[in-house]
Every structure is written in C-alpha cells, then in structure tokens.
Design a protein around this nucleic acid. Sequence first.
DNA 1: AGGAGCTTGTGAACGTGAGAACAAAATCGA
DNA 2: TCGATTTTGTTCTCACGTTCACAAGCTCCT
Lengths: 252, 252
Amino acid sequence: MTPARSRRPGAPTRTERGIPEATVARLPVYLRALTALSDSGIATASSEDLATAAGVNSAKLRKDLSYLGSYGTRGVGYDVEYLRYQIAREIGVTQDWAVVIVGIGNLGHALANYSGFGTRGFRIVALLDAAPELVGEKIGDMVVRDFAELEEIVAADRVSIGVITTPAGPAQEVCDRLVAAGVTSILNFAPVVLSVPDGVDIRKVDLSIELQILAYHEQRKSGEAALPPVPELPAMNGVVTDLPSVGGGVGA
Amino acid sequence: MTPARSRRPGAPTRTERGIPEATVARLPVYLRALTALSDSGIATASSEDLATAAGVNSAKLRKDLSYLGSYGTRGVGYDVEYLRYQIAREIGVTQDWAVVIVGIGNLGHALANYSGFGTRGFRIVALLDAAPELVGEKIGDMVVRDFAELEEIVAADRVSIGVITTPAGPAQEVCDRLVAAGVTSILNFAPVVLSVPDGVDIRKVDLSIELQILAYHEQRKSGEAALPPVPELPAMNGVVTDLPSVGGGVGA
DNA sequence: AGGAGCTTGTGAACGTGAGAACAAAATCGA
DNA sequence: TCGATTTTGTTCTCACGTTCACAAGCTCCT
C-alpha cells in the first residue's frame, strides 16, 4: 500500500468559486434540514442523518458540502450550528436582500401577505401594480404603489431582486423595466419565457408546467394499455394546450 | 458509402416508453410555444422558430421531439396544430385530471381563484381545509369543504392529483392521507421534504428555495471582493436559515 | 499508549444530458 | 426531370451530475 502521506503540491485553497449549479440548488434544502435539527436540540449530525432529513443520498450530500470546505469531523459528523452558519453565509442569506413584487393579483397578494420575509434574508420593500384601482390598497402593513415609481424605489432601496406575478401579457415589459432600473435577479411566475441580457439571473416557477409533468407520469401509470393509437392529422376538438397565469392585475 | 436503403430490422416502434425526464419537463414549454404560434395564425414552424419561442437550442428541441416520433417534414418544418395535438396527447392533457387542493391559506386561495383550470386539462373538484372557520367559505364558484371528507371525494371523483398548500407542520400527515385515499401524484408547496411510497410521484414548488438560489448568484455578482473570511465557530447572532410556508390554514 | 470502530472527504466509474455536425428526405425552380 | 436548397432526424463527442468505494483521520475504550 505505502500510502503517500498526503501532502498536496499547492494548498487546498477552498474553491470559493465554481460550486456546481446542482449543488447550489440543494444548499437551501440542507439549510432547512439543519434548522429543523437545530430546533430539535440536536447539536451534531452525521451525513447520514442530514441526508435523511434533506431527502437525498448521503454521498451526494458529502460531496456537495465538500465544495464549501471541510466543515465536518471524521468519526463524528457535522456541528449543526456551525454548518448552518457556513451554508447561510455561502448562500448569502446572512444579509438582507431587498425585493419588489410586481403584479398584485391573487398570487401577488399571497406572497405579500407572507409573514416571514422581514427577518429571514429577504425584505419586501414594495408592492407594485399598474392598475389604478389596486394602487393604495393596504396589504398587511404595506401599501400597493404605482408601477411608475419602480425606478425610484429600486434606486432608493438598492433592490436587486424582482418578483413578477403579472399575467403573461405584460411580463416581458415589466421584466425590461426591472432590468433597466437595475434589478439583476428575477423570479418569474408568469407563464412566458422572458429574455434578459447577460448578467441578469432569472428563475421560473410555473404551476401549470408542474401539473403537466405530473399528468404525464400519471398517464403512464394508469394508461399503460389504454393509450390510443397515433392518429393521422386528427380532429382537433378539445385540444388542451396551456394554462394562463395565476397572477393578475398589471395593465399595460 | 452505399447507403443501405433504410429498412430497419424491426418496425420503428415509436419508443412509447422511456422519454428522458429532462425532455418531459420541456414538453409543456413546447406546448405553450405552439399555442402562442397557433394564436398568431402561424400554421408551420421550423425547429429554429419553435426553439426561439420556447427559449431553447434548436438541436435540443429536435432531439426532444424525436423521442415522440417523426412529426416534422424535412425541408418544411412542423405543422403547428398537429404537433400541438401530439404533444398534448403525449403529456396526457387531452383528458381532464381531477385535482384537490388541501390547505386554503393565502396560496390555496390564489390557486382556487385561478380561473383557467376547468377547460384546460385539470379540474379542481374540491378545496379542503381542517379549520372549521374556513369550511363553508365560498371561493369563486366553489365551497371549502372539511378535510375529513377527503377519502369520500377522492373515491367519488377519481382524484389522482393532490396539491398541498398547508404549512410545513401538517404537510406530511396530509400527504399520508392523500396517498392512503388513492392519490398518486402530489404537488407540494409546503417547505418540507415529504416521503411517499413507491409509485407515487411528487413534485415540489418552493418559493424560499428559489429566492435563496437567486441570492447566491446575486452575492457572487456584487460581493466578489467583499466576501468575509471564514470565521472559526462564529458568534451566531442573526443567522438566517429558512422561510416558512406561504400557505396556511390546516390545523391538526 | 494503542487498537477498534466510525465517519468524512474524495477519486474513479457510470449514466444522463447538451451541443455540434451531417446524412436523409422533402420542396421548388429551371 | 433533375439539381439546388432547406430542414429534419440522428450520430458522435463532450461535459456534468450521481453513485460507489475506500483511504484518511478522529474518538473512545481497553
């Protein structure tokens, strides 16, 4: 065997850059699992414990964490509080991010009422809508303001994250205005593909797509033998195609 | 060369099984793009056109479509209506799927009010909540019913898809009840990892995770040089860890 | 003090997905 | 009728992500 007593050429140099995207997407899940363990009074957890709590494979979890650094102790596990802080810092939720929500329809309302933003990494600084009948409405301790005030608000509060909960129609225009105002991250609930310049991050949440993916698998389960044959240029009655936005309210 | 005049050993046998998961997740996007093209009165589209509308690479789109069969015409493109029908059929939205929503808090309200389910592949058959003060409330043309009626409703309406919009606490219990009642696909908005038996599909939509992913990239953009050094077992004041559910309302 | 027993961190194998490139097939014009 | 042009369907290659398996390293017990 003769295990070459490990002495790497260069220092390990914590990667600090280049965490795989798939790993980034799981870090918030680990953070939540760690919080749950912490609330249960558990001070130390093995990768197996953590993996179970987060619903993933333990090898994957260990590899994911290894991108952040070596925060565990062999033979023992991870210190829950310490690891929790490290992940929170890596994600960036040890500071508060200012957020605006555009489009105060049903979904915008729901997000605005959501009473957990203030002290938890994200701070809603404005609810915006272009419909005059909505402007001035009170939601929780906030008031809906006119979409025209966007630029002013973004500049004043250093807003970097925008949430779009408008219908599909005005979404691209709203997006363009957000980007022009200086927002560099967008969470889009409208059922459209938004185009943004390089340097702007965009993520999409789409209820209808999620349901359709479930429907596909559901059909596979129940319909095994009942699949209709492939029709040749069929009668097109009752073709189902799309689901409109959950949000609503911003006019042109 | 001697191109063996294509005559495959067996019939081409449309795969009919084994469409890659990544492709399945994009089919609804293509469906939406096709609907948009159709609404614009466009009868034929090339893979390039479609790819632009769907926000993907044209080679990827062609490969995705090839899993469904050969529905295009070389030198011409795709018949919009025909392809739209084929994708809708493959996904399974040419039929209606019965859906129940459990947890009529802010988000549950928003989804219930969402006026696009009826004629579009999914039909909400019940809104359920365990809180007595919510039961009986009218939302649109539906009435909130008691969660205790779940089993009866699932059996009567052949419900196969359940949407969970409760807080984290009761989510697993609600999930277990749904599964026991016969639901085999679940869309979960509660911020917990749900465990389900084999054969049950589950998908998760999580606002706080999406925001945290954006925050990570945002920090990378703005914080380049401002990253604090790694502290050794730091003071844990103000650590941000998690965001509670958007939904709410189901009591134990 | 030394060995037994755990658990992390990581190298290597494997599988899936993305993109480039091109042959096959269809239309259109001469 | 035949060649030029267009666009699909598919093959090949590369990159990424997942999982296995194990050496390194830590603690605890004797």
